[in-house]
Design a protein around this nucleic acid. Structure first.
Lengths: 187, 187
DNA sequence: CCCATTTTTTATCATTTGTAAAATGCAGAA
DNA sequence: TTCTGCATTTTACAAATGATAAAAAATGGG
């Protein structure tokens, strides 16, 4: 997934603005298992995934909970660092070797102040993330674990191939054992 | 809660931009019980609450789930209408008589394209909503219903006075019966 | 290929939460 | 005040999920 493609998926940009974003971005490769972001740290970069898959997880009282997966075309960021310039709650681990477009937040923020198209692109970016998050919250409220598993299976069957079930279970808000039960009863 | 105050809570604006937002907004009063937004409808307004309290709820398979409360200073909007100009999933009901600042989305979008400060204000707005939503999602994943109730009690004790328990239970993702049980065991 | 480790499945039992129905409390209308 | 309609609480029982342990399967390194 090309950078321009990822940017345009958020909202179309005039060529000059696009190029400005391209100029502050930098393609880097990371090995599988690399911890891209750490809870508590103020992260200074934003990434777009060209290739690979990552997970965000958070630890509290000796349990680790995966609450997000990102793959090709998606943005990776520590939400609190991005929005409030404070330490975030998430760790981000690369589940495969990844190629990422890296953007320094300071550079991006400068462009937000200089270029209205980029400011509106940033607005659209946050708005779209917001919709996704809200939909997950609602799905969580309305549906049983089994229903959520089945819609994950329908909407993103590839994920099950690339990510171990323990993480999926955690993402769905249940234990690995419960997920096994659900999988067994579907069969 | 004054409109300028609510706008500035999102991010500080230069006087001219502020005034532009003021010019497209309109203070209106609504009676208790009024349904401000309906699921499926493309909503064309955004509101800021000057006075009163509202709830957002959604219906699926004969159950109604309250997933948000808004009060003084907060923005009220149909997320999908605001972001994608499509019918939303929420109904919004006024739980008290309310005074609301009404802003036509078309006017606001025009300003996003004309005024970079307002574009960045819109960006900050979405970002802050995003943080709030993500924190709720994570709290949902990490904490038991009882813990969530108790932190609601701590963070916003006033809410319990203004909103009936059935809605609170639904908001916490549990039944009224479960909430009663939790309340009983704390005593 | 084999061994060690990790992941997934299966089984059992305890706990939590939901459903349904009845009892209680509360506020507004007659 | 009394009646009536809701909201809330309580109770009893059922269903879902969690905890734990152990077996089976898959994975990765040497």
């Amino acid at each position: 997934m090309d950078l321009y493609q990822a940017l345009d998926d958020i909202c179309l940009l005039p060529e000059t603005s696009r190029r400005r974003l391209r100029e502050i971005s930098n393609l880097r490769s990371f090995h599988k298992g690399y911890i891209l972001m750490k809870a508590g740290r103020v992260e200074t970069f934003l990434y777009f995934i060209k290739k690979g898959i990552v997970r965000a997880y958070s630890c509290q009282q000796d349990t680790e909970i995966t609450f997000w997966f990102g793959k090709e075309g998606e943005a990776v960021l520590s939400m609190r660092s991005y929005v409030e310039d404070k330490g975030g709650y998430e760790n981000i681990e690369l589940l495969e070797a990844c190629d990422l477009y890296e953007i320094r937040l300071a550079d991006l923020r400068r462009l937000f102040g200089e270029d209205i198209h980029i400011a509106n692109w940033g607005r659209r970016f946050a708005e779209k993330e917001l919709i996704k998050t809200e939909e997950r919250l609602i799905s969580r409220q309305f549906r049983t674990a089994s229903e959520r598993y089945q819609s994950l299976l329908k909407d993103d069957p590839g994920l099950l191939q690339r990510v171990q079930l323990g993480y999926i279970a955690s993402f769905l808000g249940i234990t690995r054992v419960s997920l096994s039960r659900i999988r067994a009863e579907v069969r």
